[in-house]
Design a protein around this nucleic acid. Sequence first.
DNA 1: ATGAAAGCGCTAACAT
DNA 2: ATGTTAGCGCTTTCAT
Lengths: 341, 341
Amino acid sequence: MKSTIKDVAKEAGVSIATVSFVINNSKHISSETKNRVLKAIKSLNYHPSKSAVNLVSGKTGNIGFILTDDHFLRTEPFYTSIFLGTEFEARNAGYYILLTSINPDFNKNDPLPRFILNNSVDGIIVAGKIPANLIDRISSYNLPTVYIDYIPTKNCCPLVLIDNLQGGLMATNHLIELGHTNIAFIGADIEHPSLSDRLKGYKQALENAKIQIKNNLIVTNSKYPDRVSGYNSIKSLLSKNKNVTAVFACNDAMAIGVLNYLNDNDYKVPKDISLIGFDDVEADLMLNPPLTTIRVPKIEMGIEAMKLLVNTLKNKKSLLNKILVPVELIERESTSTIRKK
Amino acid sequence: MKSTIKDVAKEAGVSIATVSFVINNSKHISSETKNRVLKAIKSLNYHPSKSAVNLVSGKTGNIGFILTDDHFLRTEPFYTSIFLGTEFEARNAGYYILLTSINPDFNKNDPLPRFILNNSVDGIIVAGKIPANLIDRISSYNLPTVYIDYIPTKNCCPLVLIDNLQGGLMATNHLIELGHTNIAFIGADIEHPSLSDRLKGYKQALENAKIQIKNNLIVTNSKYPDRVSGYNSIKSLLSKNKNVTAVFACNDAMAIGVLNYLNDNDYKVPKDISLIGFDDVEADLMLNPPLTTIRVPKIEMGIEAMKLLVNTLKNKKSLLNKILVPVELIERESTSTIRKK
DNA sequence: ATGAAAGCGCTAACAT
DNA sequence: ATGTTAGCGCTTTCAT
């Protein structure tokens, strides 16, 4: 049978209040008594009842984690890695995470995640883009919220963002340094701040290098940045531009699509065309050739978000923080110096 | 401020017991009173405190979901889809799911998932293969447990399994019907019951068709059934057997690896070699050519597991059930009739 | 430094 | 059919 605080008190020969004090370190208890209590706790394998603690504290001990179905199920383990990071940090902080996925086409009549409706969470983490109407409705509940990899329209909450601009610069500079000047940008969903910032970095790098920005080298008309749209985007691009020698894809999923197209159509990578991605999802390594990319520290982003949220929860005041996580160039084999034709 | 049962009682002009009775439908209440209470609940936007309910009921309202890190992060959304299924059903049943991932090399000294140690769950769902020593230690907590896609060594718990034998038969028969006789089997991790049953189905189908089983057409020496090992397995197989005209890969991940190798080495699929996978993960569709495969109803498996667990929880008795979910042949473009050389 | 007791929001046994 | 109340396991104020 599960032991309660009473059992511990009896075993240690003290009152339940004393037990509570040593558990929470909330009052000075003589070290002798403290040790007796600690020993009793251990010998009884006692763990405080979450329900009771939550009831009396008015907290739930839970954090809600929201992301869209497609982000959860997408082939590249990007948001799932972020989730894992939050879960790791939640362990340290003593919270449980309630994960829910929502339809990306969430509309006004869809019910909110039930952990919000049922007051089952103390705070919320949102990963990736979610519909604006959801953001509005969530914010009316006044739950401390942290956004990861997305900037909600109303500037309300702590944010954990990728340094996408810097990443875009790094990726493009890498190609420029290899001698490329006809560099294409393959993107999608350009309203997403992460992706538009990567494009911004691309443009800025070209400007810095005094290379003219050509709009016909930029393809951003797909809705989702996935493999299929990468495949189709490079196809349409190459049908009009034969002289492209390097491609910067806005994420690895699109880069994989690009690579598939190039492999299917007898372009040699990197001999004919250099290719760089963004994110560094695990799949990169298994490609042929392994993909040069910009690494995003996904697990760390989750950890930072959770830390931010726990801080907000403890201080009662929402610090309007913004964390920009650094990225890193990972050179593998899909990029090389330009060859004169 | 959040409203409590007292607020509702006051608003409806009844006692808190009455409110509790209508919420839980646990006693007959006149429909007139019931309506007043219901109206009060709605107008106050009342939601019972989970903590209070849990405290008094001795339950947690939570289900623990365990899977290994590599299963959670693997490229093909197989176990994540299963998780989603359990989450859907948990919504109906009013449970929350606490998801935790564990190291696949979990050893004796690693701590158990904290939701077990802290008595934070009423039951457990385990998805996929987990280490035997973990199973032992979990079972000592006597929590109702359902296993999905894995058969623990001690036959303790309700199981939700794929009809792998049938699937192996279907896949192989499909190839046989197309005229193939030199059919290779590419597998891995052959101790996993799911994968060994698929091999069993393969062998049985060949026997039924009076085709000789050749051990040099069966490769199962990789540790994990992933893309890389698929790639390497077919490579070594084809280096020794030139006359293979069809391949049955034990899952889609390996099939994708096989396809990559074939594409890279100028084998035309399905003209030169037909290829069939197993699982039907989303990636199948984006391949070139789209992969013929055996569909596994992943979401449904999660739903069934959750139903089974909820049932066990309600009946207090662990029904030693075993659910075998049916599979289905999905013909796409990677298989075709054999061509005479 | 420690203990007694009230009370968090709810369920269910018992009373009316 | 409805109300009264003890008690679930804990925290915390107030005494000692």
